[in-house]
Design a protein around this nucleic acid. Structure first.
Ligand SMILES: [Zn+2]
Ligand SMILES: [Zn+2]
Ligand SMILES: [Zn+2]
Ligand SMILES: [Zn+2]
Lengths: 150, 150
DNA sequence: CTGCATCGTGAGATAATATATCATCGGCCG
DNA sequence: CGGCCGATGATATATTATCTCACGATGCAG
């Protein structure tokens, strides 16, 4: 339920000393109710319905906050944002859980997964290069099960 | 050597029935001679020095071609382009070799690696979700060896 | 030769995404 | 009160990318 997710997000922010203001909460709600990754300007358009004065910085500031809190993720290949499937995992500050995206070429469906095999392989590869991983963007493009069987 | 790389690129294109025209070759040269990932408009500025009429589509069309040919890659997090470290790998198959990027937060250095452990882990994770991988974007952000020891 | 398709490019406009800057407001604390 | 700080409002601008129409060259078919 979206309401539940919003309440959990609020609680998580409080635990970290951050504030999920009404504006931020509304933007998070808009991201969550979209059934696909959603662009900043699409969010802005919807936001304007209830906040006529909203401008790009309005939505980008909210998105920045939500990203920092690990409540949403950005899909770099799409320049779009999605709600984190398990925001509960992202407890600490700067402690974003490892995640990967599966993006279907045909239907556009985007799924977040948390595969530790991938995370470990990345960690190992980086270590071999003397590189300390802070975060990793993994966006896998291909064909989803439904589209493949069609 | 850059000249060598350009000649190899030309040969590779010919083998695939593609044409590395003077314009495309020049853009590839500009990407290769940059010591860091370079944005499309930075390329455009340099291109204008020898081609005053160059416009955004000029450079984007060249970049699209070079991406298709696997001669360059795009860094999605930076909206920037780099020459492929081993364009030779993309030879026989007509598809792009798996690759990952290590991006240092401190100094901005970007290194392309080809780690099969990561590629296999991604393949396995996708398979578990019934997803057929076509390509994967992997951009790892953190601290490089030099910066860590400083 | 002529017509026609294809490819690469030129040129101008526009779209889509993101940031910079300054002002304002309200809570909080000393 | 008076100063600080986080959040928002408001305007302008920067950055990245695509659309559209046109033109010349090339190769091939009729
Ligand atoms: Zn997540
Ligand atoms: Zn699909
Ligand atoms: Zn490469
Ligand atoms: Zn570094």
């Amino acid at each position: 339920m979206r309401e539940t997710a919003l309440r959990e997000a609020e609680a998580a922010c409080q635990r970290r000393g951050a504030t999920l203001t009404p504006l931020r909460r509304q933007v998070l709600g808009l991201v969550l109710e979209a059934e696909a990754p959603v662009g900043a300007y699409a969010l802005l358009d919807r936001l304007k319905m209830s906040r006529p004065g909203a401008a790009p910085p309005t939505v980008y500031r909210a998105l920045d906050f939500l990203l920092e809190q690990g409540l949403i993720h950005k899909l770099e290949r799409l320049n779009a944002y999605v709600g984190c499937t398990d925001a509960g995992h992202a407890e600490g500050h700067g402690h974003h859980h490892p995640h990967q995206f599966l993006i279907c070429r045909r239907c556009g469906t985007t799924v977040e997964i948390t595969d530790h095999g991938v995370a470990h392989a990345i960690e190992a590869a980086a270590r071999r290069a003397g590189f300390a991983v802070a975060s990793a963007t993994v966006e896998i493009e291909g064909e989803c099960a439904r589209c493949a069987s069609a």
